[in-house]
């Protein structure tokens, strides 16, 4: 009789052990690799410009690590998804885009160069907000250069995404992933709808498309002092001194 019961008891113990281990792991935080949910084609008229797109390595490999006061450790890998989201968005925004690797000179024939980076990422869990929501904030940092490589403007872009855990089954990883994806989509929406107000294109100063394979001369007076719109929450645009060279 005892022998007959031994095997089921062993199985039960194994299953209980597995459940306990799962529960213990669930209390230890999470590692989230954010895959980008493809963005829809944007309903915007592309600007008739060729834009150079440069993604800093800190953006393409961005990983946020944080240990909460409770000891839970979280890691959110958002870099590759952010790179894809921004690339797709810039392709919608401009007639033509050219990828410009970090450290390489500005290629001929581009009208402007956009340098993208992530400044910070924060997240909030239901236990912190006393709601059922997971939230992710990503603060991007953009610099816009003209075709000669002179910095025209730089501005931060804080994006926000919020998701609710649908059920115990979907888990907090799915909710955090969803919140991060919504934050990336929010960043894309901000770029699509407000870039022209935040960058050198403010005040309809859309540069003339550069002739093919020709470097434009450095402009003497290229400072734009257009303030950020008060109702936007994109943040104020800071304008560097005229002629500041970054390349």
């Amino acid at each position: 009789m005892i022998k007959r019961l031994r095997e089921p008891l062993r199985t039960l113990r194994r299953r209980c052990g597995a459940i306990a281990a799962t529960l213990a792991l669930a209390g230890c935080g999470a590692t989230v690799n954010v895959p980008l949910t493809p963005l829809p084609d944007a309903l915007v008229e592309p600007l008739p410009l060729t834009a150079g797109i440069r993604m800093q390595e800190t953006l393409t490999t961005y990983r946020h690590e944080e240990t909460l006061p409770t000891g839970e450790e979280y890691a959110i890998n958002v870099g590759p998804a952010a790179e894809l989201a921004l690339s797709a968005t810039f392709e919608d925004m401009f007639a033509r885009t050219v990828s410009v690797p970090v450290g390489e000179p500005v290629p001929n024939g581009i009208d402007l160069l956009i340098d993208s980076d992530i400044d910070a990422l924060e997240f909030a869990l239901p236990s912190q907000t006393v709601t059922e929501d997971y939230a992710v904030w990503i603060k991007f940092k953009f610099k816009v250069y003209d075709s000669s490589g002179a910095l025209q403007s730089e501005f931060p872009l804080p994006a926000y995404g919020k998701a609710t855990r649908d059920s115990i089954v979907s888990g907090q990883n799915a909710a955090l992933t969803s919140a991060a994806n919504l934050a990336l989509r929010d960043a894309a929406v901000l770029l699509l709808t407000r870039f022209h107000k935040q960058s050198l294109l403010a005040g309809n100063q859309i540069p003339e498309p550069a002739p093919e394979n020709e470097v434009l001369p450095v402009a003497e007076d290229r400072a734009t002092t257009q303030p950020a719109e008060s109702e936007t929450d994109v943040g104020a645009m800071s304008v560097p001194p005229t002629g500041e060279q970054f390349l």
Binding site: L39, P40, D41, A42, L43, V44, R185, D186, A188, V189, L190, L192, T193
Partner: peptide, 12 residues
């Protein structure tokens, strides 16, 4: 929302 992207997003 996808068809009208980016004009019916939470922010816009």
């Amino acid at each position: 929302v996808d068809a009208m992207y980016p004009w019916f997003e939470p922010r816009t």
